[in-house]
Design a protein around this nucleic acid. Sequence first.
DNA 1: TAAATTTGTGCAATCGTTCCCGACAACGTT
DNA 2: AACGTTGTCGGGAACGATTGCACAAATTTA
Lengths: 338, 338
Amino acid sequence: MFEPVTIKDIAKALGLSTSTVSRALRDTHEISPATKKMVLDYAKEIGYQPNPIALSLKERRSKSIGVVVSEVANSYFSQAINGIESIAYDRGYHVIISQTHESYDREVVNVQHLASRSVDGLLVSLSSQTNDISHLKQLHDKGLPMVFFDRVAEEINTHKVIANNEKGAYEATAHLIRSGYKRIAHLTSSSQLSISIERLSGYEAALNDHGLTVNADYIKHCPHGGMIYEETESKIKELLALDEKPDAIFVAGDRLSTGCLSVFKNLSISVPGDMAIAGFSNSDVLDLFNPSLTSVRQPAFEIGKLATQMLIQLIEAKYPVEEFEKKVLDTELFVRNA
Amino acid sequence: MFEPVTIKDIAKALGLSTSTVSRALRDTHEISPATKKMVLDYAKEIGYQPNPIALSLKERRSKSIGVVVSEVANSYFSQAINGIESIAYDRGYHVIISQTHESYDREVVNVQHLASRSVDGLLVSLSSQTNDISHLKQLHDKGLPMVFFDRVAEEINTHKVIANNEKGAYEATAHLIRSGYKRIAHLTSSSQLSISIERLSGYEAALNDHGLTVNADYIKHCPHGGMIYEETESKIKELLALDEKPDAIFVAGDRLSTGCLSVFKNLSISVPGDMAIAGFSNSDVLDLFNPSLTSVRQPAFEIGKLATQMLIQLIEAKYPVEEFEKKVLDTELFVRNA
DNA sequence: TAAATTTGTGCAATCGTTCCCGACAACGTT
DNA sequence: AACGTTGTCGGGAACGATTGCACAAATTTA
């Protein structure tokens, strides 16, 4: 059906050996100009394209990197992916994206799928359900280059690129405090996630620094990170049922932020009248929201770029890299509904 | 660095030939149960994983399909991709996503990249800038299986899956008419795109059926499909500058719809007070928008699923397929701000 | 002029896997 | 006893490309 032309076809047609053709195509100095021209012309004429799979087998690398994210339909990740592609592309790497949909099982399957020599390295942002990282540790120990971004696994010793989640959370919370709110709740995703820990920490620091006490009842976790509406709704209802109902919420994720707004809309609770909200989000259309949302925006594109640069550096390193670094990029606070 | 275990290692360790090991692993009947067990046990013990690249070279297929879309950060496409993955995954195919960002040049590069035997088939939705489809035609003529979805190329004879754009556009326009608007404009992307043609046609039919005349001044094209804010803004300003200013707009794309809302917000034009809007969009958070948006929603997930099923059918067909079909799925109208 | 070097090309191995053949037992059938 | 089956297994050629080595012819050097 689809019969690609190979180096062998060229060799046969020109009465040369495959080695000569190969060398001519690669422009080696040890081929006579005449032969070289003949081969190149003929190759162009019949539209020869080298078979990347054969190359991969020989070179033992695929010139492709795998990306593991929870959802591409998430502004943060789609922006990060654009950053990833902008670098990978230039360096001649394919990018294979896989989505976990925040499921641990899918993460394991996807990672296994990407590994086994079909990708040269992995860019990983953990799913919210992931506790056990042995599937990644095992590959990392075997030498598969790996860079974490956003949701990182501290236990694995490699490069990491994250936003300054603690500072971003601090600023958002401090903004709510400065706006006069005193009972500030925190809605976040699963507790073991690095971003959850960091954002919680920033939230607590802001409260402490402003003379407010941290109330454990005000901190609610959504293990599915906003993927399930009912989960978000029930957590918010728990907050609303408290004796000392919060007057503001700091939300720690993109999907959670929009989910939160939806819940309040459905419950006919006015924002920010009855409840103020500030949350992490990278959406481009936040300005169009009603109620609007004060947001912490991460440099997603830049994070994707950096992570990819570091990964390619690992992949192409001649000797095993022992020194790893964690890059931390600042977030930006967009005040709306001030 | 990363030394994967091969069938050869197993053969050597067990004193067998690679052929026997291969057959044992593939559970052929001509291997004794004892040998089979020995091989399987040892393979499991040392964590043998077959090398998919070697397989690809041998089988002359990669078990992967390429997807060409404009942006993953577009609700329609991210939902379609979820549909694509849901099928591909089950059938053992990798999915490689590439983004054109509505650029013709990137589309050509991406398609070339995906082809050359590294994907077994292509799922394509054209970029808004694409006029010339010879890069696809050439591959299709060479026998590369290809299925179009959403933005299709009529000139290429293969399977196509689309929404009923004409009907959806008709319904949205008719809704505006029923709501009392008389001067309805149409904002759409580049004129050569299949979806633009179909949606324009539905728009015109609705006007005609309701005794309204089609006014060429009311039809504005944005070649970048909403990717460039300034372009959208200038087209809208053109509409606003008309003597008989429109009182409603039917918008033909996801990004254009949100772009349109942003422009009106920035121009302090009240929607739907000064101007009513209805548009194509698959966003999940339209309910949160202010002003809200009456939307035509496409069955994106289903379209992705169908297209993938048809593509895999083409890929795995024993004989060249000659009969192609175009599947048309109904859209849904969500009335908001009624 | 003979030896040494350069130049241009081919042979064959390699990457990991499958699969067509053929080898060679052990067994059953006339 | 001679032959055909059947069950197990190994050898080796593919798949497409690269590359170290060998080797002839052409050229330069001693």
